[in-house]
Write a protein that binds this DNA or RNA. Structure first.
Length: 413
DNA sequence: TCTGGGGTCCTAGGACCC
DNA sequence: TCTGGGGTCCTAGGACCC
């Protein structure tokens, strides 16, 4: 029998801010970005805010309208990452098997310490007290015998709580909950389940797996197993985080993009960030994808596989523009947001078959390598491609610093 | 002003090869 | 020459997570 904890830091960004600025403690606080970025908000003090009708994840402008004395703070990801690291150190002290899930959640496998769920509960209390005392933040911790129920348990009661789900009590705790409380059952799956009269996790558990398979493909089997407490997926060991599969950036621009010039400029900004991050991760990739969102918020995308692996900014820009034009995306103009990413990643020094039709351009390689080193020392704005400088209304976009949240927060130096 | 941005995985259809 | 099966790669799109 395994003993697995899932720890969830409550209102993580807001709690981090309040911990270092006690003066905002009793005010409705929003953290999450400048208005131009149109970030969602996270509220730290729900009681007062609620009296204004403010809800979590409400757009900033709406919340401000309802609650004029809302305190709005710009995000400080460097700070959140450092708090997240300290949390991680606490977890690491309990077990060698810890898997982080974003900045504010972790699974901890205590099985190797010959523990029971009861000692798991004691460990949860220990973590909560330390987090409160040392970092000023509260945790909700779930204790169970598999990852799915441990996560469910950490959501069950918050903030600052421990919930235990065992083989004896899961039917009374888990089964009455709405199906969408379970991980991997999002909005679309919930709607489809409801259509068939399936509303609770217990309903999912009692549905024949073949039915679920017909409706949801192989995920159907997974939902069935999860609902019955049969999840056997392992907690990934420290330092064994899954390899990165893709690296990309996208942005909503300060004004709509009107023509090809605008699009090229923004792709250039994004590609500079993407190629820098690919180099930082010591990778190269072979598949370039773009996505565009028009003024009706319709999204479409396209991708192409390159003749060889690359980390070059120039290759990414050229591929993005080639895709954009060849797939007829010009007709979607004006555009509100675009993105570019690279996937099919391999280590930078992985050997590859060289093609005589697409030889490596050693001059560009040397140039971009030099630019990379300059930026590493002086920041991404130290060197810029000329076409960006002509468009000063896009100059403020800095995808690398502002939109890179989940990039290897623990192993990136 | 009307859901930001970064990711993962799955599926289905088509092309191509043996 | 035709037909079919199996495998792999590529692409577009959808669903999910934080």
């Amino acid at each position: 029998m395994r003993t697995i904890l899932h720890s969830d830091a409550n209102s993580f960004y807001a709690s981090c801010e309040i911990a270092r600025r006690p003066e905002i403690k009793n005010k409705p606080v929003s953290v999450g970005g400048s208005e131009e970025m149109r970030h969602g908000i996270i509220l730290a003090s729900n009681t007062e805010a609620k009296s204004y009708g403010v809800k979590t994840a409400m757009p900033l402008w709406q919340a401000r309208k309802l609650c004029p004395n809302l305190t709005i703070l710009p995000p400080d990801f460097k700070h959140y990452i450092s708090v997240s690291r300290k949390l991680r150190e606490m977890y690491d002290g309990l077990s060698p098997v810890v898997e982080n899930f974003g900045l504010d959640e972790c699974w901890i496998d205590l099985s190797s310490r010959d523990t029971t769920l009861k000692t798991g509960k004691e460990a949860a209390l220990y973590l909560r007290e330390r987090a409160k005392k040392e970092l000023g933040i509260t945790l909700s911790v779930g204790v169970s015998y598999n990852k799915v129920f441990a996560k469910l348990a950490s959501d069950y009661k918050k903030p600052d709580a421990t919930t235990l789900i065992s083989e004896d009590n899961y039917k009374s705790i888990v089964w009455p909950l709405p199906a969408s409380y379970m991980i991997f059952i999002g909005n679309k799956t919930r709607q489809k389940l409801n259509k068939y009269g399936i509303r609770t996790i217990g309903d999912v558990a009692k549905t024949p797996p073949e039915c679920l398979k017909n409706w949801f493909g192989k995920l159907g089997y997974m939902h069935h197993a999860n609902a019955n407490g049969l999840d056997r997926s392992p907690v990934m060991k420290t330092g064994h985080e899954a390899d990165v599969k893709s690296i990309g950036n996208s942005t909503t621009t300060p004004r709509d993009m009107r023509d090809l010039e605008d699009v090229r400029c923004v792709f250039t900004i994004l590609a500079q960030s993407v190629s820098t991050r690919v180099r930082e991760a010591y990778l190269k990739g072979k598949c370039v994808s773009i996505s565009v969102r028009d003024t009706n918020l319709n999204i479409s995308g396209a991708q192409k596989t390159l003749p060889r692996y690359t980390a070059l900014c120039r290759d990414i820009i050229d591929s993005a523009m080639e895709l954009f034009i060849s797939k007829g995306f010009e007709k979607h103009l004006p555009l509100r947001s675009i993105g570019v990413k690279i996937s099919s990643l391999v280590p930078y020094d992985a050997p590859e078959q060289l093609s005589m039709f697409s030889p490596v351009d050693t001059k560009i390689e040397a140039l971009e390598s030099a630019v990379f080193n300059i930026r590493k020392r002086y920041g991404i704005h130290a060197v810029q491609l000329g076409n960006i400088l002509l468009k000063d209304d896009f100059l403020s976009i800095n995808p690398k610093e502002e939109h890179t949240v989940h990039t290897l927060p623990f192993f990136n130096g």
